[in-house]
């Protein structure tokens, strides 16, 4: 459903950037106006969405408990999967956010007839981890374009990422994450295409970000290894953006602007899409609350009194029957 449409939209965006910069010469629009606008939309939209979520209160404390609870008895509590304290919750959230623990739980490897059999869901966890971490590393690596002196942390990440020390076609050092992210994206896309049940639940808005990020990755790889864009000029542009004194150097080439434009689109699209799960996961009340319900009262800001049947009304209706049966009553 909608996969073709999503692909066409991304191709259209690429075409737009190509025409805009390669033919019409609107480098300053694609290099300055769009990125700034997208960045503002991203920041404002992101904050707006989080505030909007935050304004919906958490009326009840309803964690999903995934291990033995804390009780006054001697049984050993599972402090990560069923935390009863803030620290426990922090630990649970850490594993949730950094290791995708819930997704991993899915993934019981089983030994059948002496052979390790891995359910499809294990691959989902693996694909998700591969994608998110390589995305994160690539994102961090790119910070060198926005800082005058490359911080040691980023240089460190770069050297780890390129530890294979391979050069392709005489190009700069090869980054492992470039390969990993393409593989992961193709896997995530592939399961939506080839697994009928996923194809059924997928919306255009599931395919679109995949194609968009794939477009960004591919243009990035083309620039680095094949067409060798002039990195000094690119950095001149990006640094000027950082310092709010935008200058557009001549002759960077459309490929860069396509890359840059797709990133702008991703930023602008982010707050309006499911990509907001990045922020949502931190706010999810089934994960970020301690299971200490019977120890510590949770207050609901909008709780209101409800009408219920009081004992007096109950006794009024049944008093005769109660008396006859010898059950004590309040009013004789």
């Amino acid at each position: 459903m909608g996969i073709v449409r999503a692909l066409l939209v991304v191709l259209g965006l690429i075409f737009l950037a190509y025409v805009g910069t390669g033919i019409l010469g609107l480098e300053s629009i694609f290099g300055v106006v769009f990125p700034y606008t997208a960045f503002v939309i991203f920041v404002v939209g992101f904050i707006y969405k989080v505030i909007k979520w935050g304004r919906s209160p958490v009326p009840y404390r309803i964690p999903t408990t995934a291990g033995q609870h804390y009780s006054s008895l001697w049984f050993k509590q599972n402090k990560i999967d069923n935390p009863s304290t803030g620290w426990g919750v922090a630990l649970r959230m850490f594993f949730e956010v950094f290791t995708f623990r819930s997704l991993f739980r899915n993934t019981k490897a089983e030994f059948l007839k002496g052979r390790l059999y891995i359910g499809s869901s294990k691959w989902l966890w693996f694909g998700a981890i591969a994608f998110h971490y390589s995305f994160l590393i690539i994102f961090l690596r790119h910070m060198r374009f926005f800082t005058p002196e490359t911080p040691w942390l980023i240089s460190g990440i770069e050297s780890i990422d390129s530890f294979l020390q391979i050069h392709i076609l005489g190009s700069p050092l090869f980054y492992i994450t470039n390969l990993v992210i393409v593989g992961a994206l193709l896997y995530l896309l592939g399961r939506r295409v080839f697994d009928a049940k996923l194809r059924y639940i997928s919306l255009p808005s599931d395919y679109f970000p995949l194609f968009l990020i794939l477009g960004i990755v591919i243009t990035g790889i083309l620039m680095r290894y094949f067409f060798k864009v002039d990195v000094t000029k690119v950095k001149e542009l990006t640094l000027s953006l950082t310092f709010l004194k935008p200058t557009v150097p001549e002759g960077i080439g459309s490929l860069f602007y396509i890359h840059f434009f797709l990133i702008s689109v991703l930023f602008a699209y982010f707050p309006f899409s499911k990509l907001m799960h990045m922020a949502g996961v931190f706010l999810s009340p089934t994960r970020n609350l301690a299971n200490n319900n019977r120890m510590k009262r949770h207050v609901n800001p909008w709780e209101y009194p409800v009408k219920h049947r009081h004992y007096e009304e109950y006794e009024d209706e049944f008093r005769d029957k109660m008396k006859k049966a010898g059950i004590p009553v309040e009013k004789e």
């Binding site: 979520w53 989902l124 399961r191 997928s202 996961v281």
Partner: peptide, 10 residues
């Protein structure tokens, strides 16, 4: 808002 339809629950 945040479901990504990954299908882990399916």
């Amino acid at each position: 808002d945040i479901c990504v339809r990954c299908g882990a629950c399916a």
